[in-house]
Simulated scan of single mutants.
Amino acid sequence: MLDSTETPGGCWVHFSVIVTPVIRESPGVTLSEHKSLTVGQAVDLEWEAPGQDGFAFMAAEVRP
């Protein structure tokens, strides 16, 4: 869950929407950094409504 003034009550987030830098890319294979967030970390958040799992908002893209 992410907290934001734009998403009162929290925003549901799945790790697949966390954008991380690409480390290496070759035909058919893309290697990127591990997708994770830490408590208190500032992020850029794009969200959509309706949310998921009881949340009014769902993250569409998260950039650490």
Rank of each mutant, 00 (worst) to 15 (best):
M1D: 13
M1Q: 10
M1E: 10
L2M: 06
L2W: 05
D3C: 04
S4E: 01
S4L: 03
T5E: 13
E6C: 05
E6R: 07
E6P: 00
T7E: 04
T7M: 00
T7D: 02
P8F: 09
P8S: 03
P8R: 01
P8Y: 02
G9K: 03
G9W: 07
G10M: 00
G10I: 02
W12D: 02
W12N: 00
V13I: 10
H14P: 00
F15C: 10
F15R: 05
F15A: 04
S16Q: 02
S16C: 08
V17Y: 12
V17F: 11
V17I: 11
I18S: 11
I18T: 07
V19S: 09
V19H: 12
V19R: 14
T20A: 07
T20G: 02
P21F: 00
P21N: 03
V22R: 11
I23Q: 03
I23W: 02
I23V: 10
R24E: 12
R24D: 05
R24K: 09
E25Q: 15
E25V: 11
S26I: 15
P27T: 10
S32R: 15
S32T: 14
E33M: 14
H34E: 11
K35I: 11
K35M: 10
S36R: 14
L37N: 11
L37D: 05
T38Y: 08
T38F: 10
V39Y: 15
V39C: 06
G40C: 00
Q41Y: 11
A42M: 08
V43C: 09
D44V: 06
L45R: 00
L45M: 00
E46T: 08
E46I: 06
W47T: 01
W47I: 04
W47L: 01
E48M: 08
E48R: 08
A49H: 13
P50N: 02
P50V: 03
P50H: 04
P50D: 06
G51Q: 04
Q52K: 07
Q52A: 05
Q52H: 06
Q52E: 09
D53E: 15
D53S: 15
D53Y: 14
G54H: 04
G54I: 13
G54F: 05
F55H: 14
F57I: 04
F57Y: 15
F57P: 02
M58P: 00
A59T: 02
A59Y: 03
A60R: 15
E61M: 15
E61D: 06
E61G: 01
E61T: 10
V62N: 04
V62M: 07
V62C: 03
V62L: 09
R63N: 10
